[in-house]
Simulated scan of single mutants.
Amino acid sequence: MSTIVSFKNVQKTYDGETLVVKNLNLDIRTGEFLTMLGPSGSGKTTCLMMLAGFETATHGEILLKGKPINRIPPERRNIGMVFQSYALFPHMSVAENLAFPLKVRKVPCSEAGERVKKALAMVNMQSFANRMPAQLSGGQQQRIAVARALVFEPALVLMDEPLGALDKQLREQMQYEIKRIHEESGLTVVYVTHDQGEAMTMSDRIAVFNNGIIQQLAPPSELYEQPENAFVARFIGENNELKGTVSEMHDHGCVVELPHGGSVRASAGSGIAVGSTAGISLRPERITIGEGARQCDNVFHGGVKDLIYYGDHLRIVMVVCGHDDFIVKVPNDGMNRRVRVGDGIDVGWMADGCRALR
Protein backbone atom coordinates (compact mmCIF):
# COMPACT_ATOMS: atom_id res chain seq x y z
CA MET A 1 0.00 0.00 0.00
CA SER A 2 1.33 3.44 -0.94
CA THR A 3 2.03 6.20 1.58
CA ILE A 4 0.13 9.49 1.38
CA VAL A 5 1.61 11.30 4.43
CA SER A 6 5.03 11.04 6.06
CA PHE A 7 6.26 12.75 9.20
CA LYS A 8 10.08 12.76 9.16
CA ASN A 9 11.80 13.53 12.49
CA VAL A 10 9.15 16.15 13.28
CA GLN A 11 9.44 18.17 16.48
CA LYS A 12 7.25 20.94 17.85
CA THR A 13 7.85 23.38 20.70
CA TYR A 14 5.83 26.46 21.57
CA ASP A 15 8.23 28.00 24.11
CA GLY A 16 11.60 26.94 22.70
CA GLU A 17 12.22 24.58 25.62
CA THR A 18 9.52 21.92 26.02
CA LEU A 19 8.91 19.58 23.08
CA VAL A 20 5.20 18.91 22.60
CA VAL A 21 6.03 16.50 19.76
CA LYS A 22 9.34 14.61 19.91
CA ASN A 23 11.04 13.20 16.79
CA LEU A 24 7.85 11.95 15.19
CA ASN A 25 8.30 9.45 12.36
CA LEU A 26 5.00 8.22 10.95
CA ASP A 27 3.80 6.99 7.56
CA ILE A 28 0.07 7.16 6.85
CA ARG A 29 -1.16 4.77 4.16
CA THR A 30 -3.35 5.82 1.26
CA GLY A 31 -7.00 4.97 1.95
CA GLU A 32 -6.61 4.05 5.61
CA PHE A 33 -8.46 5.34 8.65
CA LEU A 34 -5.72 6.25 11.11
CA THR A 35 -6.55 7.56 14.57
CA MET A 36 -4.22 9.59 16.77
CA LEU A 37 -5.26 8.66 20.30
CA GLY A 38 -4.01 9.91 23.64
CA PRO A 39 -4.74 11.97 26.75
CA SER A 40 -4.90 15.77 26.74
CA GLY A 41 -1.47 17.28 26.11
CA SER A 42 -0.05 14.14 24.51
CA GLY A 43 0.73 15.85 21.17
CA LYS A 44 -1.93 14.27 18.96
CA THR A 45 -3.84 17.46 18.09
CA THR A 46 -0.59 19.37 17.50
CA CYS A 47 0.39 16.71 14.92
CA LEU A 48 -2.96 17.13 13.18
CA MET A 49 -2.63 20.93 13.16
CA MET A 50 0.87 20.70 11.65
CA LEU A 51 -0.47 18.40 8.93
CA ALA A 52 -3.34 20.80 8.25
CA GLY A 53 -0.95 23.77 8.11
CA PHE A 54 -2.34 25.66 11.12
CA GLU A 55 0.86 25.00 13.08
CA THR A 56 4.46 24.95 11.82
CA ALA A 57 6.91 22.18 12.66
CA THR A 58 9.89 23.42 14.69
CA HIS A 59 12.09 20.73 13.14
CA GLY A 60 11.68 17.96 10.57
CA GLU A 61 9.57 17.60 7.47
CA ILE A 62 6.01 16.63 6.58
CA LEU A 63 5.42 15.10 3.14
CA LEU A 64 2.09 14.82 1.30
CA LYS A 65 2.23 12.43 -1.66
CA GLY A 66 6.02 12.61 -1.45
CA LYS A 67 6.22 16.41 -1.59
CA PRO A 68 7.26 18.64 1.35
CA ILE A 69 4.37 20.79 2.59
CA ASN A 70 5.95 22.61 5.57
CA ARG A 71 5.92 25.94 3.71
CA ILE A 72 2.63 25.45 1.84
CA PRO A 73 -0.31 27.42 3.36
CA PRO A 74 -3.38 25.43 4.55
CA GLU A 75 -5.63 26.51 1.66
CA ARG A 76 -3.21 25.08 -0.90
CA ARG A 77 -2.77 21.64 0.68
CA ASN A 78 -6.05 20.16 -0.68
CA ILE A 79 -6.89 18.77 2.76
CA GLY A 80 -10.44 18.60 4.19
CA MET A 81 -10.95 19.47 7.86
CA VAL A 82 -13.76 18.65 10.31
CA PHE A 83 -13.77 20.34 13.73
CA GLN A 84 -15.66 19.58 16.93
CA SER A 85 -17.30 23.03 16.74
CA TYR A 86 -18.74 22.34 13.21
CA ALA A 87 -17.50 25.83 12.08
CA LEU A 88 -20.43 26.36 9.70
CA PHE A 89 -21.15 29.89 8.47
CA PRO A 90 -24.38 30.87 10.31
CA HIS A 91 -25.50 33.37 7.64
CA MET A 92 -25.25 30.81 4.81
CA SER A 93 -27.63 27.99 3.94
CA VAL A 94 -26.44 24.38 3.98
CA ALA A 95 -25.92 24.44 0.21
CA GLU A 96 -24.03 27.75 0.41
CA ASN A 97 -21.79 26.38 3.17
CA LEU A 98 -20.88 23.43 0.96
CA ALA A 99 -20.40 25.61 -2.11
CA PHE A 100 -18.03 28.00 -0.34
CA PRO A 101 -14.82 25.88 -0.58
CA LEU A 102 -15.66 25.26 -4.25
CA LYS A 103 -16.09 28.99 -4.87
CA VAL A 104 -12.68 29.65 -3.28
CA ARG A 105 -11.19 27.09 -5.67
CA LYS A 106 -12.99 28.74 -8.62
CA VAL A 107 -15.00 25.63 -9.54
CA PRO A 108 -17.62 26.53 -12.20
CA CYS A 109 -21.14 27.03 -10.81
CA SER A 110 -22.69 24.15 -12.77
CA GLU A 111 -20.06 21.70 -11.54
CA ALA A 112 -20.24 23.11 -8.01
CA GLY A 113 -23.99 22.44 -7.87
CA GLU A 114 -23.49 18.80 -8.79
CA ARG A 115 -20.71 18.37 -6.23
CA VAL A 116 -22.89 19.87 -3.49
CA LYS A 117 -25.70 17.42 -4.30
CA LYS A 118 -23.27 14.51 -4.29
CA ALA A 119 -21.76 15.52 -0.95
CA LEU A 120 -25.20 15.94 0.64
CA ALA A 121 -26.17 12.49 -0.63
CA MET A 122 -23.09 10.97 1.00
CA VAL A 123 -24.31 12.14 4.42
CA ASN A 124 -28.04 11.53 3.68
CA MET A 125 -28.91 15.24 3.96
CA GLN A 126 -30.28 15.96 0.45
CA SER A 127 -33.50 17.53 1.72
CA PHE A 128 -31.70 20.04 3.96
CA ALA A 129 -29.93 22.07 1.27
CA ASN A 130 -31.94 25.25 1.92
CA ARG A 131 -31.91 25.09 5.73
CA MET A 132 -29.81 27.44 7.83
CA PRO A 133 -27.35 25.93 10.35
CA ALA A 134 -29.45 27.22 13.28
CA GLN A 135 -32.36 25.10 12.02
CA LEU A 136 -30.31 21.88 12.33
CA SER A 137 -29.64 19.60 15.29
CA GLY A 138 -26.07 19.01 16.46
CA GLY A 139 -25.86 15.71 14.62
CA GLN A 140 -27.21 17.27 11.41
CA GLN A 141 -24.70 20.12 11.64
CA GLN A 142 -21.89 17.61 12.06
CA ARG A 143 -23.06 15.75 8.94
CA ILE A 144 -22.94 19.02 7.00
CA ALA A 145 -19.46 19.74 8.36
CA VAL A 146 -18.35 16.31 7.09
CA ALA A 147 -19.97 16.96 3.70
CA ARG A 148 -18.19 20.32 3.42
CA ALA A 149 -14.85 18.59 4.05
CA LEU A 150 -15.60 16.12 1.24
CA VAL A 151 -17.18 18.42 -1.36
CA PHE A 152 -13.94 19.59 -3.02
CA GLU A 153 -12.68 15.97 -3.28
CA PRO A 154 -9.57 16.37 -1.11
CA ALA A 155 -6.65 13.97 -1.04
CA LEU A 156 -6.98 13.69 2.72
CA VAL A 157 -9.57 14.45 5.42
CA LEU A 158 -8.56 15.42 8.97
CA MET A 159 -11.03 15.17 11.87
CA ASP A 160 -10.29 16.79 15.24
CA GLU A 161 -12.56 15.39 17.99
CA PRO A 162 -15.52 15.78 15.59
CA LEU A 163 -18.05 13.96 17.80
CA GLY A 164 -17.08 15.46 21.16
CA ALA A 165 -20.17 17.69 21.42
CA LEU A 166 -22.71 14.94 20.69
CA ASP A 167 -24.62 12.76 23.14
CA LYS A 168 -23.78 9.05 23.43
CA GLN A 169 -26.44 7.65 21.09
CA LEU A 170 -25.84 10.24 18.37
CA ARG A 171 -22.09 9.89 18.79
CA GLU A 172 -22.30 6.14 18.14
CA GLN A 173 -24.54 6.72 15.12
CA MET A 174 -22.08 9.24 13.67
CA GLN A 175 -19.17 6.85 14.25
CA TYR A 176 -20.93 4.40 11.96
CA GLU A 177 -21.74 7.10 9.40
CA ILE A 178 -18.16 8.40 9.20
CA LYS A 179 -16.77 4.88 8.89
CA ARG A 180 -19.32 4.10 6.15
CA ILE A 181 -18.34 7.23 4.21
CA HIS A 182 -14.67 6.30 4.56
CA GLU A 183 -15.23 2.78 3.25
CA GLU A 184 -17.45 3.86 0.36
CA SER A 185 -15.27 6.78 -0.76
CA GLY A 186 -11.81 5.25 -0.27
CA LEU A 187 -10.64 8.49 1.35
CA THR A 188 -7.68 8.68 3.69
CA VAL A 189 -8.88 9.84 7.11
CA VAL A 190 -6.70 11.02 10.00
CA TYR A 191 -8.83 11.23 13.13
CA VAL A 192 -7.94 12.66 16.55
CA THR A 193 -9.69 11.62 19.75
CA HIS A 194 -9.04 10.91 23.42
CA ASP A 195 -11.90 8.37 23.45
CA GLN A 196 -10.34 4.90 23.16
CA GLY A 197 -13.72 3.23 22.50
CA GLU A 198 -14.26 5.52 19.51
CA ALA A 199 -10.76 4.79 18.22
CA MET A 200 -11.22 1.02 18.58
CA THR A 201 -14.56 1.11 16.74
CA MET A 202 -13.51 3.15 13.72
CA SER A 203 -9.81 2.74 12.98
CA ASP A 204 -7.70 0.60 10.68
CA ARG A 205 -4.67 1.58 12.80
CA ILE A 206 -4.26 3.60 15.99
CA ALA A 207 -1.24 5.67 17.01
CA VAL A 208 -1.25 5.90 20.81
CA PHE A 209 0.42 9.15 21.94
CA ASN A 210 1.86 10.07 25.32
CA ASN A 211 4.26 12.91 26.14
CA GLY A 212 4.74 13.75 22.47
CA ILE A 213 5.81 10.22 21.49
CA ILE A 214 3.93 7.40 19.75
CA GLN A 215 3.90 4.59 22.28
CA GLN A 216 2.51 2.04 19.82
CA LEU A 217 1.12 2.04 16.29
CA ALA A 218 -1.03 -0.97 15.43
CA PRO A 219 -4.52 -2.23 14.51
CA PRO A 220 -7.05 -2.08 17.39
CA SER A 221 -6.98 -5.83 18.12
CA GLU A 222 -3.18 -5.84 18.39
CA LEU A 223 -3.16 -2.85 20.75
CA TYR A 224 -5.65 -4.60 23.00
CA GLU A 225 -4.20 -8.11 22.91
CA GLN A 226 -0.48 -7.24 22.66
CA PRO A 227 0.22 -3.84 24.22
CA GLU A 228 3.91 -2.89 24.03
CA ASN A 229 4.08 -1.14 27.39
CA ALA A 230 2.12 -0.48 30.57
CA PHE A 231 0.82 2.91 29.35
CA VAL A 232 -0.84 1.37 26.27
CA ALA A 233 -2.31 -1.47 28.37
CA ARG A 234 -3.82 1.04 30.80
CA PHE A 235 -5.08 3.44 28.12
CA ILE A 236 -6.65 0.87 25.78
CA GLY A 237 -9.53 -0.89 27.49
CA GLU A 238 -9.91 -1.83 31.13
CA ASN A 239 -6.93 -3.42 32.81
CA ASN A 240 -5.82 -4.97 36.09
CA GLU A 241 -2.14 -4.36 36.82
CA LEU A 242 -0.18 -6.56 39.21
CA LYS A 243 3.42 -5.48 39.81
CA GLY A 244 6.28 -7.81 40.67
CA THR A 245 9.78 -9.01 39.81
CA VAL A 246 10.62 -11.36 36.93
CA SER A 247 12.14 -14.57 38.32
CA GLU A 248 12.17 -16.80 35.22
CA MET A 249 12.19 -16.47 31.43
CA HIS A 250 11.23 -19.32 29.12
CA ASP A 251 10.12 -19.89 25.53
CA HIS A 252 6.46 -19.26 26.24
CA GLY A 253 6.83 -16.23 28.50
CA CYS A 254 7.96 -15.55 32.05
CA VAL A 255 7.23 -15.96 35.76
CA VAL A 256 6.67 -12.87 37.91
CA GLU A 257 6.96 -13.02 41.71
CA LEU A 258 4.42 -10.83 43.50
CA PRO A 259 5.34 -8.80 46.61
CA HIS A 260 2.43 -10.25 48.63
CA GLY A 261 3.43 -13.83 47.81
CA GLY A 262 2.71 -16.15 44.93
CA SER A 263 3.79 -15.94 41.33
CA VAL A 264 2.14 -15.35 37.96
CA ARG A 265 2.93 -17.08 34.68
CA ALA A 266 2.51 -14.62 31.80
CA SER A 267 3.47 -13.87 28.22
CA ALA A 268 6.35 -11.40 28.02
CA GLY A 269 6.45 -8.01 26.34
CA SER A 270 9.61 -6.43 24.97
CA GLY A 271 12.41 -5.59 27.40
CA ILE A 272 11.35 -8.12 30.03
CA ALA A 273 14.32 -9.90 31.68
CA VAL A 274 15.10 -11.82 34.87
CA GLY A 275 15.43 -9.39 37.77
CA SER A 276 13.47 -6.61 36.11
CA THR A 277 10.34 -5.06 37.56
CA ALA A 278 7.23 -5.79 35.50
CA GLY A 279 3.57 -4.84 35.53
CA ILE A 280 1.25 -7.70 34.60
CA SER A 281 -1.56 -6.54 32.32
CA LEU A 282 -4.70 -8.62 32.86
CA ARG A 283 -8.02 -7.85 31.18
CA PRO A 284 -11.09 -8.30 33.45
CA GLU A 285 -12.91 -10.52 30.94
CA ARG A 286 -9.97 -12.97 30.80
CA ILE A 287 -10.57 -14.00 34.43
CA THR A 288 -12.52 -17.06 35.52
CA ILE A 289 -14.12 -17.38 38.97
CA GLY A 290 -15.22 -20.35 41.08
CA GLU A 291 -14.53 -23.97 40.20
CA GLY A 292 -13.38 -23.15 36.65
CA ALA A 293 -10.58 -20.99 38.07
CA ARG A 294 -8.81 -24.07 39.41
CA GLN A 295 -8.11 -25.29 35.87
CA CYS A 296 -6.16 -22.13 35.01
CA ASP A 297 -2.37 -21.55 34.97
CA ASN A 298 -2.69 -18.87 37.65
CA VAL A 299 -5.04 -19.37 40.63
CA PHE A 300 -5.56 -17.03 43.60
CA HIS A 301 -8.17 -16.61 46.33
CA GLY A 302 -9.96 -13.30 46.69
CA GLY A 303 -12.81 -11.55 48.44
CA VAL A 304 -15.83 -9.96 46.77
CA LYS A 305 -15.96 -6.24 47.64
CA ASP A 306 -18.71 -4.98 45.32
CA LEU A 307 -21.04 -6.15 42.54
CA ILE A 308 -22.16 -3.86 39.72
CA TYR A 309 -24.97 -4.91 37.39
CA TYR A 310 -24.46 -4.06 33.68
CA GLY A 311 -27.28 -6.06 32.14
CA ASP A 312 -25.37 -8.50 29.96
CA HIS A 313 -22.51 -8.90 32.46
CA LEU A 314 -21.56 -8.42 36.10
CA ARG A 315 -18.59 -6.32 37.16
CA ILE A 316 -17.12 -7.75 40.34
CA VAL A 317 -14.75 -5.62 42.42
CA MET A 318 -12.47 -7.89 44.47
CA VAL A 319 -9.54 -7.90 46.86
CA VAL A 320 -6.89 -10.08 45.16
CA CYS A 321 -3.10 -10.23 45.63
CA GLY A 322 -3.15 -7.20 47.94
CA HIS A 323 -5.16 -5.10 45.47
CA ASP A 324 -8.62 -3.93 46.57
CA ASP A 325 -9.64 -2.69 43.11
CA PHE A 326 -9.21 -5.94 41.17
CA ILE A 327 -11.93 -6.06 38.48
CA VAL A 328 -13.56 -9.21 37.08
CA LYS A 329 -16.18 -9.21 34.31
CA VAL A 330 -18.38 -12.31 34.05
CA PRO A 331 -21.52 -13.14 32.02
CA ASN A 332 -24.79 -12.38 33.75
CA ASP A 333 -25.95 -15.99 33.96
CA GLY A 334 -27.67 -17.93 36.73
CA MET A 335 -24.47 -19.26 38.29
CA ASN A 336 -22.64 -15.92 38.47
CA ARG A 337 -25.67 -14.18 39.99
CA ARG A 338 -25.15 -16.31 43.10
CA VAL A 339 -21.97 -14.38 43.95
CA ARG A 340 -22.48 -12.09 46.95
CA VAL A 341 -20.52 -9.23 48.54
CA GLY A 342 -18.29 -10.68 51.25
CA ASP A 343 -17.87 -14.08 49.54
CA GLY A 344 -14.43 -15.64 49.32
CA ILE A 345 -13.88 -17.08 45.84
CA ASP A 346 -11.12 -18.45 43.63
CA VAL A 347 -10.05 -16.43 40.59
CA GLY A 348 -7.88 -17.74 37.78
CA TRP A 349 -6.52 -16.92 34.35
CA MET A 350 -4.32 -18.51 31.74
CA ALA A 351 -0.70 -17.51 31.14
CA ASP A 352 -1.45 -16.36 27.60
CA GLY A 353 -4.32 -14.22 28.94
CA CYS A 354 -1.97 -11.81 30.71
CA ARG A 355 1.18 -9.97 29.68
CA ALA A 356 4.25 -8.80 31.61
CA LEU A 357 5.19 -5.26 30.54
CA ARG A 358 7.69 -2.55 31.39
Rank of each mutant, 00 (worst) to 15 (best):
V190R: 02
M200T: 08
L98P: 01
A155P: 04
G139T: 09
E198Q: 12
R148E: 08
A119H: 04
H91N: 14
K103S: 10
G164E: 09
S93I: 05
P74H: 11
A119P: 01
V104H: 08
S85F: 12
R115V: 06
G113L: 07
R105M: 12
P108G: 05
Q140W: 03
G164L: 07
K106D: 10
L88C: 02
H182M: 02
A155C: 08
R143I: 03
G139A: 10
A112I: 04
L163P: 01
F89H: 12
E161C: 10
L120E: 02
R76E: 09
L102D: 01
S93Q: 11
T188K: 00
A121I: 08
L163C: 07
E177A: 06
Q175I: 07
G164S: 15
I79K: 01
P90Y: 09
L88Q: 02
Q84D: 09
V189F: 11
A99Q: 08
L170W: 06
P101F: 07
N78T: 14
S185Q: 08
A165D: 11
E114I: 12
M92E: 04
Q141K: 14
C109E: 14
K179W: 05
E153K: 09
Y191F: 14
T193M: 10
G164I: 03
F83V: 08
M125C: 10
I144A: 02
K103P: 01
K179S: 12
L98A: 06
E184D: 14
M125W: 01
M81R: 00
D160Q: 07
L166R: 09
L88E: 03
M132H: 03
E96T: 06
M81T: 05
H91K: 11
D167I: 07
R115H: 07
G138H: 04
R77G: 07
R143W: 02
P133S: 13
S127E: 13
E153Y: 09
A87I: 09
E114A: 13
P133M: 08
V104C: 14
Q135M: 12
Q140I: 10
K117V: 07
I178H: 01
G113F: 06
D167G: 04
A155H: 08
A121F: 11
M122V: 09
I79N: 00
D160F: 04
V94S: 03
V107I: 13
F83A: 12
V94R: 03
A95S: 11
M159T: 03
P90Q: 10
A145M: 00
E75N: 15
V157E: 00
I72W: 03
E183V: 12
